[in-house]
């Protein structure tokens, strides 16, 4: 049997690649992300809220320095405090990450997307990469701006840099609030990890979006993980809570942005920066794998 092929002259040039896949889908996702206003609003809020809150917190801490007890002074970490704004920005990151997925499910556009790229894992990976890249840029800008603005706020309120090689004892006895430079051991890593923390959370939000497919449900779940989970853990028996607390996403963020192992070791509350980053990355990876598995298995 020979098929009677319809005779049609197509106006389109031949595509160069082998098949529709990740490359085209990456370009498509970038187009989709940049052509809705909510993206730019979210990104602006991340920067403004992140930097603004950090400056405010450091300004308050600087004013309180003279009244602080020795143990409080020992715990003071001007780098981590300068990243406080990220813990507000993280909610906006969640909205952005979830919306990239759930807005398509809400309108039915996800069907068009999956029909254009039938290899569904490419769709998931492209969304994660594009959202991740955009959040990386904006979150790092926010983290470094928060750091430099924060240290400037401290300097403006009489803060002084501790000389190289100074110890915890020096910090406790310092007359003025201490200021760290970006060259301070661990400072660069802590600030960079501040931005990375938001990227990993964006992955998490995106994955939750694929799993739940509803905007409100996804954002509530994300907020629940960051805000409600710590509350639940805190009412557990303390022996139990202590071993769990450091694995909560928000505490992983605190661990990631700490400069000194001193604070991270404190009462075993936080994990060290690299371990914290690894655990949060594992959460994001696990959620993404579940999202991918469901995406391939479920009806669109």
């Amino acid at each position: 049997m020979t098929a009677i092929a319809p005779t049609r002259v197509t106006s389109l040039p031949e595509p160069s690649g082998r098949r529709a896949g990740l490359r085209g889908e990456l370009a498509s996702e970038w187009t989709k992300l940049r052509t809705v206003r909510s993206t730019w609003i979210c990104l602006a809020i991340i920067v403004v809220a992140g930097v603004g809150l950090s400056a405010l917190v450091l300004s308050i801490e600087a004013g309180r320095w003279v009244h602080l007890a020795a143990d409080e002074r020992a715990l003071f970490d001007p780098v981590r405090s300068s990243q406080t704004g990220l813990f507000l920005a993280e909610f906006v990151v969640g909205v952005l990450g979830a919306l990239v997925v759930t807005s398509e499910y809400g309108t039915g556009a996800m069907r068009t997307t999956l029909a254009s790229v039938p290899r569904r894992t490419s769709v998931l990976i492209a969304k994660l990469l594009v959202v991740g890249a955009v959040v990386l840029v904006v979150a790092e800008v926010t983290a470094f701006a928060s750091f430099f603005v924060g240290q400037a706020v401290l300097l403006g309120q009489g803060g002084t840099s501790l000389p190289a090689g100074s110890t915890l004892i020096d910090q406790v006895h310092a007359a003025n609030v201490p200021v760290y430079g970006i060259g301070h051991p661990g400072a660069l890593r802590a600030v960079f990890f501040g931005g990375l923390y938001l990227v990993l959370l964006a992955f998490l939000a995106c994955a939750i979006g694929f799993i739940l497919r509803h905007t409100a449900g996804s954002i509530s779940t994300y907020v629940g993980v960051l805000l409600v989970l710590p509350l639940i853990v805190s009412i557990l028996p303390s022996s139990f809570a202590n071993s769990f607390e450091k694995y909560l996403p928000s505490n992983l963020g605190l661990g990631m942005t700490a400069v000194t192992t001193r604070t991270t070791d404190f009462a075993g509350i936080l994990l060290t920066p690299w371990v914290a980053a690894g655990v949060l990355a594992a959460y994001a990876a696990a959620a993404s794998l579940l999202a991918g598995w469901l995406l391939v298995r479920r009806d669109a």
Partner: peptide, 18 residues
């Protein structure tokens, strides 16, 4: 997406299939 222009919507689709 209600906030996206017709052009941007079609462009995003076009990009997936070269």
């Amino acid at each position: 997406h209600p906030g996206r222009s017709a052009y941007a919507h079609l462009l995003s689709l076009a990009q997936t299939n070269a």
